[in-house]
Design a protein around this nucleic acid. Sequence first.
DNA 1: GAGCACTGC
Length: 701
Amino acid sequence: MEVSDEENGPSPNKPLNGTNGHDRKRQKMRKSFPNGAAVNGVNGVSKAQHLQEQRAQLPIAQGLEALVREIAAHDVTIILGETGSGKTTQIPQYLLECGAFPGVIAVTQPRRVAATSLAARVSQEQGRPLGTLVGYAVRFDERTGAETRVKYLTDGMLVREMMSDPMLERYGVIVVDEAHERTLRTDLVLASLKKILRARNGEESGKGKARAHNPLKVVVMSATLDAEKFSKFFDNAPVLYVKGRQHPVSIYHTSTSQVDYVDAALRTFFQIHVDQPPGDVLIFLPGQEDIESLESSIKSYANQLPSNSVGVTLCPLYASLPNAQQSRVFTPTPEGTRKCILATNIAETSITIPGVKYVIDTGKQKEKRHLARMTGSGFDTLLTTDITKSSAMQRAGRAGREGPGFCFRLYTEEAFDAMALSSEPEVRRSSLTSALLQLRCIGHDLETLDFMDNPDAEAVGAALRTLWILDALDETKRLTKLGRSIAAFPLEPQLAAILLASVEHHCTADVISILSLMSASAPLFPDSSAQRDAASEARTKFRHPSGDHWTMLNVFRAYDEVCGSESKGGRRDWCKRNFVNERALREAGDIRTQLRIVCDRANINKEISCGQDESPVLKSLVRGLLQHTALLQPDGTYKQAMGPSIIKIHPGSFLTEKRSPAIVYNELVYTTHIYARGVSAVSKSFISDFPKRVTSGRAGS
DNA sequence: GAGCACTGC
């Protein structure tokens, strides 16, 4: 079996390649950039020319004019583009150059790095400094100016912008890229765009209103699956097909199913390593644990090979790995060795590794599942599951980026056939609390808005209830003044409610620090099993009797002092010595800066601290996390105040083994028990201050 | 007495 361009997806509705003469196109391109050479100077001429030649050679270049004609003729155009087609860099430039589309061209991306690096590339192709004609906007970082006409931004950023500009008036074209990934924010953007199109362009042309003065064009770009679904969603919008530049990948399945996929990966790797020509190997595994175990097995077997054989350079790759170690995958493979990358599905979409010729696919991944969300907001669990067909194809494609490749699947062809086509869109899987509130702020109802896939009624009910408990919505589900304030913060609504409660309790400075650490993606206290005792010893000095929130605050306060006196290296040493994650502290620092700016805008005094008095902070926490509180039972376990579950304090918590009449916690995780993580002891009265909420919560659960 | 796939404002 072979993955080729033709096999990768449905056949084209309108093949566009080869419809235009190659030479004509090149001339047209040069004409479009009279200033490029002047800006760049003598050396720049050849560089700019080189870039233009590269552009002209992209698979998409020959169909661009026809593509733009289609976009001009329709409100919405769906573009199916394979990887390597150049659609994301070229289409926005062509829309700009042809001069037919006034206003700013927005291009959304699910990931920050994609938005920033695409903007850098495209502004280079335009021969202009980044942030002038071409710019980007992602969280913590924006480079745009008054003359910016092409703006790459994350889909979450566009959702934020809709809250102050509900009709997205500043944009003439909105390109939604990677739409097949169906992130929650992409789905929010698509649903809103459908409504915005009706408002800005009027009803479908032919009858009724004349075209409005500021019409909007929408371009939806997707990989090869689900095109018809996008087309149907946008009233049968035309589907255009763009060919990619992908080399063929030969795919092999096992004849029997493999129970131990780590062992199977080990054997397959050495078959490749011993028998096959040079070329790096990428192995997909579900998680860190498997990566570490396979790494040590490969190491020990590689040492037993004859001394004259090719060595192995091992590169583990997963998100929580420090950046310096992640970037090892990009360093050239040392002479006389074969690079072997052991990766999670971070290598499926987020990181593209050059030089890979062989892929070994275990067919497994880890997936976060939210269980029993109606029972006091539910709990999360992390399961190892089978991947989907589209994941399997994406993984195989990683072998064919630079030349013909090979993919060894550690599962049978029958198992592949039995896989789901693609994973459920995020809107069907995740909490809708934040989405519902944001939509309310721009006057949309999540309950009635037309989505690609409609949200689950239970999840909508849970979100409504949470927002009502926070006083963000009133009894009639109308947005309150508090709800609008909550939505102004780039935080989960529960956490934003804590921040606003801190104003009344005069501890905003302290609470902002805690919330920043809570919403950072990396954990402050990583659990390194190897040095567990040393770690807990070193962390003792930060320990606060009330529990984890104040302990986190103590760490942040200490780190702030270190930052005032130490160099970059000194800070790193301090973190290492104390077994705290510097990445978490740096990210929290960025979040804290952003939260302080929003506070200023909302006329909130961000400087007020409660010093060492713990109750104001704890009272604020309870206000936002009412659904995450539990009461001590006679047997020493805890029962949710607003749900039926019996829970335990996670052994990693500083409060474990302690008995407090009541606790508040960040999250519940289900492993061997239902554990509460990020726990603080609170007075029962803090919870019963909201009797109506607690009672009604019980009745509803 | 225990286990952290991946994103985003």
